[in-house]
Simulated scan of single mutants.
Amino acid sequence: MPHDESRPAADRSGAGAEEGLRRSAAFLVDEALGFAFPAALRAAADTGVADALAAGPATPDELAAATGTDARNLYRVLRLLATRAVVAEDERGRFTLTEAGQALRADVPYSVRDAVRMLTDRAFWLPAGRMTDCLTEGGTAFDAVFGMPFFDHFAQDERTAAVFHVGMAAMSEAENAAVAAAYAFPDTGTVVDVGGGHGGLLREVLRRNPGLRGVLHDRAHVLAGHRLDDEKEIAGRWSTAEGDFFTAVPAGDVLLLKRITHDWDDDECVTLLGHCRRALRPGGRVLVLDAVVPRDNAPHQAKAMDLLMMVSLTGRERTEADFAELLGRAGLRLSRVLPTPTVLSVVEAVVQN
């Protein structure tokens, strides 16, 4: 059809606007369906599909027999995972675990199978479904779903506590070596890993810095799962200290807080950081190892993690300016921010003069 120059410009722009709205509608519907992917990823993690694929390509029937699952439904899950290159389907209907999907296996270094299960656990999943409540009422949705705050629920539900601590250890494992290598630690002194979980980060710091000693600080039930004694290379250079970091922390020359501050609101963080400041020996440093949210529109893991903090905990992810203000309230000064090859940065703080 020839272009009608007599058609009013307003009509032409109206047609273009209508097409734009159709594209917007299709885009938003696709985005609304996006939650099906982490559900499928969790199902694969729960059933050990990635481990069953370790030996090579397999059909859904073969995988179902190996994992005790329903073949037709398993195929439907794998078909969606293939759209994000976690697995790939060939022309014979066999599935292969891709390079991107390897860390879903339980038997490989840096496995995130337990981390996937943690991030998609009902402790995050159910409150996320009530995110609107956070906007209309403020605060977290977790209390309304579970009847108590996040960490109080931990104290009463061993299953949730185990999922969280094992999942956090798995999530951290792929980060620890890179984070430990990104900072020039002193040649001698004591490093305290505050709320250090199973000790993965402290282990890496001590391995790379043979003149340092380390203290792993956490609650007793968490320390029971530590893995520091697995490393002969650091034998005799570490100890554990039971405690609550909202009460006090052990003294040291470098205090580490990895993925801790984002769990807590500003006032709680000021209390914690105040204890860290008082525990620092002269010339010491506090290293907050957390994501620093960029001030742009680009995708960033911290922007998604921030919403999990919003719906389930009292904390949030923070910008560099947020950290500077928070540290200042605790009597500390942000001295520099060092990027690492991971999503985390090293936010270095010293005592204010």
Rank of each mutant, 00 (worst) to 15 (best):
R281K: 15
E175H: 15
L78P: 00
L33Y: 09
H3A: 14
E233H: 13
R227Y: 00
P109D: 06
E268P: 00
R76Y: 08
H217N: 11
L28C: 05
G196D: 05
A25Q: 13
A184I: 01
V286A: 08
V191M: 06
K232T: 13
V343M: 11
M171F: 14
R213H: 15
P339Y: 03
G214Q: 07
V166L: 10
H262F: 04
D107L: 09
A304I: 11
L80F: 03
T83L: 12
E325C: 02
A85N: 14
L256N: 03
R79M: 07
E91A: 15
T132E: 13
F185I: 00
T188N: 09
R117N: 06
G93D: 04
G129T: 06
L326Y: 03
L272Y: 01
G101A: 09
A39W: 10
M309Q: 10
V311N: 02
A169N: 02
A324Q: 08
Q156N: 13
H262W: 05
V293W: 02
L33H: 11
R12M: 08
V179K: 03
F246P: 00
D296C: 07
G14C: 09
A52I: 04
A25F: 11
P60Q: 12
H165L: 09
A52N: 03
G101M: 06
T47R: 15
A324Y: 00
L119I: 09
A9C: 01
M310Y: 01
A36L: 15
M118A: 03
E317L: 05
F164V: 07
A52D: 02
T136D: 08
A10I: 13
E5P: 05
V351W: 00
G328Q: 09
E99Q: 12
E91F: 11
I260W: 04
R333P: 01
P294R: 11
A324P: 00
E233W: 08
G189E: 06
A174W: 07
L256P: 03
